[in-house]
Design a protein around this nucleic acid. Structure first.
Lengths: 336, 336
DNA sequence: TTTATTTACGAAACCGTTTTCGCAATTAAT
DNA sequence: ATTAATTGCGAAAACGGTTTCGTAAATAAA
């Protein structure tokens, strides 16, 4: 029951290998009658083409690479769905590669892509990524690449982002409107543009409302859940404890809630919380969580669509093809 | 800056193509000096091998396929991490394919695998999968396949599962111990073994405690969130409304909570809820959710390890290589 | 009727590796 | 000094498709 190949099909039908191939690809050179026979026999013998042979000869893989930090994250898993929906339509496969927020992993993955494994790349950089030679190398190599969510300014290609600055601003302004005056900001990386833009929005909002910035209220979280918990706890035990928190990333939600509970701080009475998050469970948390919700599916879809434009039209330039899709503030009880 | 290939490397070094290939693969036939030169030049010219050429020639892809219903699900995203951790160690890549719970998609994906795209498969079947010819075909084709979580009894190969019957029993017994006497069971599929085993555990627990089974309290959910919400709401509006719910799958959590809220049913006072779930946010829900938590990462890891055993040792049989890794009941306030 | 064109197919090269086999040159054994 | 074994490398055949080019037969145009 080994898989059959074109040569065996040719033998079976008393036709040449090239005729079979052309028939399978619906070439105009082949008569309808022969096509019918070939298709019928291929189906009967359960022929499945070897994708690597086609890729090798055709110098295209019909794969796109999606490089993301984590898959256990609502934003990324929803984005994958968006990406996949358009890839499927185009007859492409999606190769999901995880960096686990490690720069070294990211570089290794992109380097491998140079070998031709994928025809194009969608990338959301790791929290450690500070320089972009590995990305520029890949692009110089001829691979179209589109950033989504986490981009690198130093790379000239399309970037699908959300309005991070405005969202940071909106989140902070919302807390201020709810009469918070000591607002903490939880970042995940000094390097990540999204993190920095959200931070800038936060700073601008404080400034616009004449609230002094307290550097001790701006903390860098890590990639370790336990450590983040301790950092947050420490933050909430400062003498000038914050009465509002803007968390720039979803995975900080649980440690924040747990820390508040441990310290007997009532949300939202003692402290109000808003997170950048796509958690489906935001609405049923205790208390329900006010979020900045990103258009994850949409961003994946737009990024993929743009990438395919570049794949289908080699002289379509991805430079200056940026899209910014706004996030939405969903007010719930954690800031009530 | 196009990617270089072995032929160009050979030209550069005045060596033959075969020598380069052997040097890169650290063959004993090549002198240390030559190897050094080849490696150095390969690095300098940024050579990256074409994986498709190797795959074609070697008749192995160094890929494993992971076929799952969804990626936006804690269990599966954690399982992916487990799988990936061992694949990486073995130098393999993971091709994640989503069925979106569609049998047709599942069949198409497995069929494609016959072409040689992957060397082995980890599968968690869709909720629609009732017959397994497509799976048996693939195995007959020589591809090792290991089930994880959602298996098919009709296929003779390794299955990594959790103690679904016992978990269903434990969950139900826990509700009974908390004095529920009208317990509903939310299933996602009549076909899925996990769903059925959990249901059997539920039935057994009811029986052991002399509680009559109410068929109206056993409902089949769908793949549509909105529809599930309506089904649950209807369930909770029956005259003999349940005072306990066992949900056999994570994604039902939100609709259950929302429905209870809409109907002004207090959890756990009016109704107690327990879900099969790996949600990180279970602890901070309102109220915190009692769960049956599956060893997702571990299951992925064990499944992958077993698959690699079969890949590395062609006469290792996967038949009768089943593993059952127990889930744990985590009691929280939703059943308090 | 002769020439031109179209139709339908086959032979062979090619994609980039790996691997088998052959063969010199060197080293070891007799 | 002769034979045997070893070392280090190259030529060429795969792997399974696609594509270019050539060509015989059938059809159309002259």
């Amino acid at each position: 029951m080994k898989n059959i190949n074109i040569k065996e099909l040719a033998l079976e039908l008393n036709l040449s290998v090239s005729t079979i191939s052309k028939a399978l690809n619906d070439s105009y050179e082949i008569s309808e009658e022969t096509k019918r026979r070939v298709l019928e026999t291929a189906a009967r013998l359960n022929y499945v083409p070897n994708p690597y042979a086609s890729s090798l000869r055709g110098r295209k893989s019909k794969n796109i690479g999606v490089v993301i930090p984590e898959v256990a994250d609502s934003f990324f898993s929803l984005a994958i769905n968006g990406i996949e929906s358009v890839a499927k339509e185009k007859g492409y496969h999606v190769l999901i590669c995880l960096t686990h927020e490690s720069f070294e992993n990211e570089r290794t993955i992109l380097k491998e892509f140079q070998g031709g494994r994928v025809d194009g790349v969608l990338l959301s950089v790791s929290r450690e990524t500070t320089q972009c030679n590995h990305i520029n190398d890949l692009i110089a190599n001829g691979l179209p690449l589109v950033f989504f969510d986490r981009a690198c300014d130093a790379v000239e290609t399309a970037k699908i982002t959300t309005d991070d600055f405005e969202s940071g601003y909106k989140a902070t302004a919302h807390l201020i409107a709810q009469s918070c005056n000591q607002i903490a900001f939880l970042s995940i990386s000094n390097y990540l543009s999204i993190s920095n833009k959200r931070l800038e929005g936060y700073l601008q909002a404080l400034n616009d409302h004449k609230i002094e910035v307290n550097p001790k209220h701006i903390i860098q979280c890590t990639n370790d859940a336990e450590q983040n918990y301790l950092l947050i706890k420490k933050l909430l035990q400062q003498k000038n404890r914050p009465n509002g928190i803007v968390a720039s990333v979803e995975k900080l939600t649980t440690p924040i809630y747990i820390a508040c509970e441990a310290l007997k701080l009532k949300v939202p009475q003692d402290i109000k919380v808003i997170c950048f998050s796509n958690l489906e469970t935001a609405a049923i948390l205790n208390p329900s969580l006010t979020t900045i919700t990103q258009p994850a599916f949409e961003m994946g879809k737009v990024a993929a669509t743009l990438l395919f434009k570049a794949l289908e039209n080699r002289n379509f330039s991805l430079i200056k093809e940026d899209f910014m899709i706004p996030s939405t503030l969903v007010v719930r009880r954690s800031t009530g």
